[in-house]
């Protein structure tokens, strides 16, 4: 049995004016420990699909199962991280990272200790009593990662978590997120429109076509690249080859769009 299984997922948004089909016929599975990237032009339904997997949105058709269990509402084993940090400005960093535990009534000494250890791991232990506005964008996104990891989810959903950051911070954070998730044995789905980021971080890349969003192709990242941290992977020759290949596919999608 697959860790995560999506079957015939379709999503149509209705408004008074029109019905928009955002997703159609999405079927695939994810193995435990795998790092998947969703890649595709904006508006192809990546965020919508992530919301469905997170149980925040029920799909018009199809089912999501996690270890055979139907996902119909948010599940404690699934963590969700947004494009921006969305740390609560009125809470201290400490209160922010404990939010999930508080909501799930899990504020036990062990869980608190685990969360504080995570803070140490990402190097932000000395910010606990500060408020988010005192932190830089990169630091805030790291805190948001800890907030998501605090409840110990098995599956992490990351919706363009680096897109609001400057390039240097983004590269550093890619390494940090990649190594942290590997170390803790998490399964992850990353949404991105950055080809390089998808190659550098993931084991498998799923390419989406648009209008409506469908699976277009799937690429396996070579073993050589997988073993490397994102920053090193970006230097490797396999990286450039793969970049070229995906680039051409994306061009093709655009071409189809234009017709």
């Amino acid at each position: 049995m697959a860790f995560l299984q999506l079957k015939d997922i379709g999503q149509t948004y209705y408004s008074k004016q029109a019905a928009t089909t955002a997703l159609e016929d999405i079927t695939f599975s994810v193995a435990e420990g795998e790092f998947i990237s969703f890649l595709g032009p904006s508006g192809c339904g990546k965020s919508t699909l992530l919301s469905i997997i997170a149980g925040l949105l029920s799909p018009t058709t199809g089912t999501v199962t996690l270890r055979g269990q139907h996902i119909t509402k948010p599940h404690p084993k699934i963590g969700y991280m947004l494009q921006q940090d969305y740390l609560f400005p009125w809470k201290t960093i400490q209160e922010n990272i404990m939010t999930g535990l508080k909501l799930q009534h899990q504020l036990t000494p062990e869980r608190i200790e685990y969360t504080l250890a995570l803070m140490k791991e990402i190097g932000l232990s000395d910010t606990l009593s500060l408020y988010p506005k005192a932190l830089s964008g990169g630091m805030r996104q790291r805190v948001a990662l800890v907030r998501t990891l605090a409840t110990n989810p098995k599956l992490l959903l990351l919706d363009e978590p680096f897109s609001a950051l400057d390039y240097q911070t983004k590269l550093k954070l890619e390494d940090l997120v990649s190594s942290t998730l590997k170390e803790h044995g998490k399964t992850a789905i990353l949404v991105t429109h950055d080809i390089g980021e998808a190659i550098a971080m993931s084991d498998r890349i799923i390419l989406f076509s648009t209008k409506p969003g469908r699976l277009f192709r799937s690429f396996s990242v070579t073993e050589t690249l997988r073993r490397r941290l994102p920053f090193e992977a970006r230097q490797h020759e396999d990286y450039s080859m793969m970049f070229q290949e995906i680039w051409e596919e994306l061009e093709q999608i655009e071409q189809n769009d234009a017709d």
């Binding site: 925040l56 509402k73 599940h75 969700y80 947004l82 921006q84 969305y86 609560f88 999930g100 409840t151």
Partner: peptide, 10 residues
């Protein structure tokens, strides 16, 4: 999105 954060934690 702030609400989404809370909802994602159930």
């Amino acid at each position: 999105n702030y609400v989404k954060v809370i909802r994602s934690f159930g």
